[in-house]
Structure formats: C-alpha cells, structure tokens
Design a protein around this nucleic acid. Structure first.
Length: 209
DNA sequence: AACACTGGCAACCGCCATGCG
DNA sequence: TCGCATGGCGGTTGCCAGTGT
C-alpha cells in the first residue's frame, strides 16, 4: 500500500473509524469549540474530547478554514481599544510584553476592576494575574470563581462580585459575540500560554480555580 | 474551453511522551 | 538505564473540486 503504520493509524483515527461524524458542524458544536478555544487555545484533542464523533483534525480544519472566518468576518482585527480600561501608567515589568505595550497604551478587552484585570470564566484569576504581571499592575488580591454561586469572589472584599467582563450576571456566560470579541483581540491564547510558561518555570505563585 | 485562483480537508511532518524488552 | 517502536499532538502541506476570468 506504500503506507507506513503511522499513516494507516492516522487514516483510521481521522476518517475510517466507526462513529466518526462527517458533515456540517451544528451551532452547538460551534459554540463549544469557540468557548473552549477562548479558554485553552488550540488544544484540539481536548476540544475534540467534548465533541463525540469529531476528531481533533476535523475540528482543527474546521476552525482554520471556516469558523475563524465566520466569527471574524475574515478579518482579524488589530487589538481594539477597550472603553473599560484606564490608561496604562504603571511600569511595564515583563520583557515579554514590552513587545506589545508601552506605558500609556490601553489594554484590550479587559475591564479594570479595582486594579484587577478580568476575562474568561474560571480562568479569570489566573488571567488577571497573568495579564497583571505582563502589564505591571500591582495586585492586592485576585478574583476567583465561587463554584456554588458562580460569581467572582474577591478575597480583598470578602464578597462576591456579579457578572463577567461582558456584563453578564453569570461570569461563565458568554455569547457568541463575546467570544468573537475575545478571539478578535488575538490576545487570549497568548495570555494563557504565557501563564503556562510561568507555571512551568515556577514563577506563578497563585492559581485559583 | 482553458487557465488561474481559492477553499476545504485528508494526509504528512516533526517533536515529544510513553511503553517495553 | 538505554534504545527502539509506537502513540499523541499541533502545525503545515498538497491535492482536488469548485469558481472566476
């Protein structure tokens, strides 16, 4: 057959295997893919795990060829200016982010909340510390999501905070438009990757979930 | 009709992890 | 512990059908 074992295996896994779903993705599947992508980036195998019958390859192709364009209208916009945020005046502390921001720039798509930066569901706290570190914010505390109330919990206040950065009461509630906005910044996976790097190098000291 | 261009998708590549003798 | 085979994964390539000129 002029095929190596690995190639055959791949063919089986991605195409021939029973119960593989071929054809159009449903709106629900779109939503799940988008939601997970904004949270974990291009971890296709994990995303595929949430979509029975879909393979990682399938989802990767779908994202790259259709979904991304569908969401962004084929136009990946440059980082927009968020109306939420104050000007950055603090010192940039991360060499990483010096490539992206300079003092006085505005930070995209994160609402400043008592010097906290918020985005993204349960990752809010890690993202806030991440982004905060990048941008040189000085955090007094972090926000975490309370599993029972599904609200952010601010330890510094000892209280819950309603809503997410898109104004939804449930911090885990995102519309497609929200996700579209998040992705369009082309910023999220970078943030998460940066944070993962911090974990790897043991620079991260606090992680809430 | 012929050619160029584009988009979708299966397949490939390279790297890393794991299992096993 | 080492070396090899295999598996898993994300990024990329190349084929091909459809579309435009």
């Amino acid at each position: 057959m002029k095929r190596c074992g690995k190639s055959c295996r791949l063919r089986w896994l991605n195409y021939l295997r029973p119960n593989i779903k071929h054809g159009e993705f449903s709106d629900d599947e779109d939503r799940i893919i988008c939601s997970l992508y904004t949270r974990i980036g291009s971890r296709w195998s994990i995303i595929a795990g949430q979509l029975p019958g879909r393979t990682d390859n399938d989802i990767k192709n779908y994202w790259n060829t259709k979904l991304k364009k569908k969401l962004l209208g084929g136009n990946i916009r440059p980082t927009p200016i968020s109306p939420f945020l104050p000007n950055l005046t603090s010192q940039i502390s991360s060499p990483y982010d010096q490539l992206r921001y300079t003092a006085g720039d505005k930070v995209p798509l994160h609402r400043s909340y008592n010097n906290q930066v918020i985005f993204g569901g349960n990752e809010a706290s890690c993202s806030s510390s991440d982004t905060g570190n990048q941008l040189g914010f000085h955090h007094q505390s972090y926000l975490s999501v309370d599993d029972e109330t599904q609200k952010f919990y601010d330890p510094s206040k000892g209280d819950h905070v309603s809503g997410n950065c898109f104004g939804h009461e449930n911090p885990l509630d995102y519309s497609m438009e929200d996700i579209k906005q998040l992705i369009s910044t082309n910023h999220i996976s970078t943030n998460l990757n940066f944070f993962v790097d911090e974990i790897k190098t043991e620079q991260a000291t606090t992680l809430y979930y």
